[in-house]
């Protein structure tokens, strides 16, 4: 049914989306790369001389960069570990015959719809606050000293907050995948005497492999860019203890107005994200053929 005529019409229909996205990608990207090669500070007006890779060597040799990289990896890794393992367990549990499955599902998915600034401020003040927070009250009940979460373990606290938001996401996706599993296969395995553990490892886990990969990759893309949670709780501190790459670039560009260094950091962030993106794209691309 695809004639010459309809092909031309199709191209015409696709063009706006493609051109807009092309512009959105190429113009700012080109500018970021260009700025990253200039000495360019908004506080120092005047001409912005070309300095080659000076911004990169400055950004990459700054000890804060190493801390930020490490924090980024810990943040992404920590959240992934909690949400993936927790998500598998929760999905397996909810998939069992239980009373009120629909309501349980609704309660579990809810945190995913809470905007990051609300979630971060609620956790920071009403739970983690060492004086008035609920955790302090619970600690007091058990005869423990209250713990100042965001001052003493800022990164871990942020990992906790972000995991609360994303555990529902992982659970929902894995639960959806589990429900598409052919129950006859499981019953057959059970008849053949396979115990719950071997059923999990030999039937369920292979079936979930694809969903797990998708959960990990998509979350990685989002978590590399965690920003709001850090901004409203710790501002990257104390010191730089909870500064990730995204926050560091933000601080360089919009707090210190160093456009050159900020842009160099932006390019580094893009390269990092692209490494993950390549794997994700392959996964999704395979699915298109199916």
């Amino acid at each position: 049914m695809a004639t010459q005529h309809s092909r031309a019409a199709a191209r015409f229909m696709i063009a706006p989306s493609v051109l807009l996205l092309l512009g959105w990608m190429l113009i700012p990207l080109g500018m970021t790369i260009y700025f990253s090669l200039l000495r360019y500070n908004l506080l120092m007006p005047g001409n912005n001389p070309f300095v080659g890779f000076e911004n990169y060597s400055y950004f990459l040799s700054d000890p804060t960069f190493l801390t930020a990289m490490l924090n980024t990896l810990l943040l992404v890794g920590g959240v992934l570990l909690i949400t993936t393992v927790g998500g598998i367990l929760l999905a397996l549990l909810i998939d069992q015959p239980i009373w009120g499955q629909g309501i349980v599902r609704i309660l579990v998915i809810a945190p995913f719809f809470v905007m990051p600034t609300v979630s971060a401020l609620v956790w920071k003040n009403m739970f983690m606050n060492p004086v008035n927070g609920l955790f302090a009250w619970v600690a007091d009940l058990m005869g423990l000293q209250p713990y100042d979460f965001l001052a003493s373990a800022p990164l871990l606290s942020i990992i906790g907050m972000v995991s609360w938001t994303w555990l529902p996401f992982a659970t929902l996706i894995l639960l959806t995948a589990l429900q598409s599993l052919d129950s006859e296969q499981l019953e057959a395995a059970e008849m053949d005497g396979a115990g719950p553990v071997s059923r999990f490892f030999h039937i369920m886990l292979p079936h979930l492999a694809r969903a797990i990969t998708v959960v990990i990759l998509i979350q990685t893309i989002f978590h590399l860019s965690i920003f709001a949670e850090i901004l409203v709780t710790t501002n990257g501190g104390p010191g730089v203890a909870s500064t990730n790459l995204t926050y560091l670039v933000y601080a360089e560009s919009l707090l210190r107005f160093d456009v050159g260094t900020g842009s160099a950091g932006g390019v580094v962030a893009i390269i990092l994200a692209n490494i993950v993106a390549i794997f994700l794209m392959r996964m999704i691309g395979k699915n298109l053929d199916a």
Binding site: L21, L29, M31, T32, S225, G266, A269, A273, N274, L280
Partner: peptide
């Protein structure tokens, strides 16, 4: 696939421009 790849661009990479 290319459209999807634009979604992978970290926002902080284009924040300044």
């Amino acid at each position: 696939m290319w459209m999807l790849s634009t979604k992978m661009l970290p926002p902080v990479g284009v924040l300044v421009p």
